[in-house]
Design a protein around this nucleic acid. Structure first.
Lengths: 130, 130
DNA sequence: ATCGGATTTGCGAATAATTCGCAAATCTTT
DNA sequence: AAAGATTTGCGAATTATTCGCAAATCCGAT
């Protein structure tokens, strides 16, 4: 019933971690991992496992129907939400103080507890606004 | 170059509007629309069009790899963000005051402007918490 | 270090989801 | 009502994702 953080999973996660500023589709990840001798089906299974275990998160992208995956930094997720830019696809972290204020607002008024690993705020970043 | 809000699109949108408290997969929508004589390919094309025109938004759901679509209420989107429950898939709106505070925090500190039609906060709603 | 039972992987085929091409039907403006 | 542009239906082509099962790995207890 237990499950393992296997070599493949560690490697997939490592790939996303070293590229944590952008998200990848299952296909892109499968191609990357294929070069390292990992089968396509394992990639799908590992993505599902990593997501279920809170190691990665999903997002979607303008005009693309696929789901994109990106590395989740547990420490950072405890303090701030993700902001991903629809233009350039890159992710930054929201200010921790503002995040905290917002979470308590939501918990208090709406009785809703936010999943910070999964939630992504979409919009346009400062760089792309110009 | 212009494009039309056709009968089919209006009807698809109407279906999502009358069921605006939950999201539907393309497949579910295709089935619903098929009963009304709409082809599957038109459903996909119409979903893309409606999304591009800001009439509907996407979300994803635990354990499901498909993309789900739901009605966007323009008026409400101006004032509050969506909160969708990962358990039951239903959507509620965040308190407008809290939303406003949060948006200005983000704009100020992070220089990021949030797309309120696209953004969805995931978590667990008050009802499902029990 | 090795053994054994549980979990994961590769492979290739099966399913499911989404897109395409093109002629016919609709739509909006005139 | 006519013309030109956009949308639709149909069915086939593509893509994406999942499955089944034997072989390979993994990890905890020897």
């Amino acid at each position: 019933m237990a499950s393992y953080m296997t070599g493949q999973r560690r490697e997939l996660l490592g790939f996303l971690r070293t590229n944590h500023d952008r998200a990848f589709s299952a296909k892109e990840i499968a191609e990357e991992m294929s070069d390292r001798g990992v089968s396509q089906s394992a990639v799908y299974r590992n993505l599902a496992w990593l997501e279920k275990n809170g190691k990665i998160s999903r997002s979607t992208r303008d005009g693309h129907r696929e789901i994109y995956y990106s590395f989740v930094d547990a420490e950072e997720c405890r303090r701030s939400l993700h902001l991903t830019c629809e233009k350039c696809g890159r992710t930054v972290h929201m200010d921790p103080a503002a995040t905290g204020r917002m979470l308590s607002d939501i918990a208090g008024r709406d009785g809703f507890s936010v999943n910070m690993k999964k939630t992504v705020l979409y919009g346009v970043c400062a760089k792309c606004k110009g």
